[in-house]
Amino acid sequence: MASRPELLAPPEVFYDDTEARKYTSSSRIIEIQAMLSERALELLALPEDDVPKLLLDIGCGSGLSGETLTENGHHWIGLDISPSMLNIASEREVEGDLLLGDMGQGLGLRPGVIDGAISISAVQWLCNADKSSHNPRLRLKAFFTSLYRCLANGARAVFQLYPENLDQRELILNAAMHAGFAGGIVVDFPHSSKRRKEFLVLTCGQRSTNTSVTKGKGEDGESCSDDESEDEENKTVSISDRHRPRKKQKHNKGGKGREWIMRKKEQMRRRGNDVPPNTKYTGRKRKDRF
């Protein structure tokens, strides 16, 4: 099996000018990308009312997947971290708008405006820590919560991914569920090692009647996605949650401070506890040499 690009270098480094050009000029890759995005779009199950939708392409690269969206008449916004890939996309004059951004930093989009999101072979990159400041768990969380906010009620997000192992799949799925998504994994051609493709299908907000997880292609008999679709019912959250303000992050670098200690001591005194008297040493920082 070919080596996995995400093990070689971070995406913005791996997809440099040469690699980006190579990627986009390979007819095999173009074909696979078109096929995958076609299938992802199918799994999005957009309402068939012939009104163009505003979609998000996460990890759009050189815009190969976006082209499929354009062919189907939708408007799209593409996000990628590799400037070289985006340069090629703009050279190829793709219809969608491109953004240079890192999905692990969260998407800066207004709440509830996007009708659907697709992502072809991108999310597994989030499982790597390429910098010392990266924490895959936090980056996945930032990504999925921000995605959940920007999707419209009832919208879907479909991610085609190549998880390296079971743990990675679990990590991604958990992050998505914690963000409030419902859904599961659809496996196309589960019995073929070459054609096997996994799609993570997530639904945002209220579950409408038609959002049960679609069956994978080429599955005989037992459906592999059965167990996930059962989970789905328990894991849907109510939509009122979506507009709650983001949690303020706690930062207590300098400790609790003198004021806080005084308040606590006062509280303890009122309860009749034995509390040492307040002196000039109360709440003072120790010397470094201690």
Binding site: L54, H75, I77, D97, L98, L107, G108, R110, I114, C150
Partner: peptide, 15 residues
């Protein structure tokens, strides 16, 4: 970038 995208974008800086 079109105004369509501009209208969806917001600043994502912490705080």
């Amino acid at each position: 970038m079109r105004l369509l995208t501009h209208n969806m974008l917001s600043s994502n800086i912490k705080g």
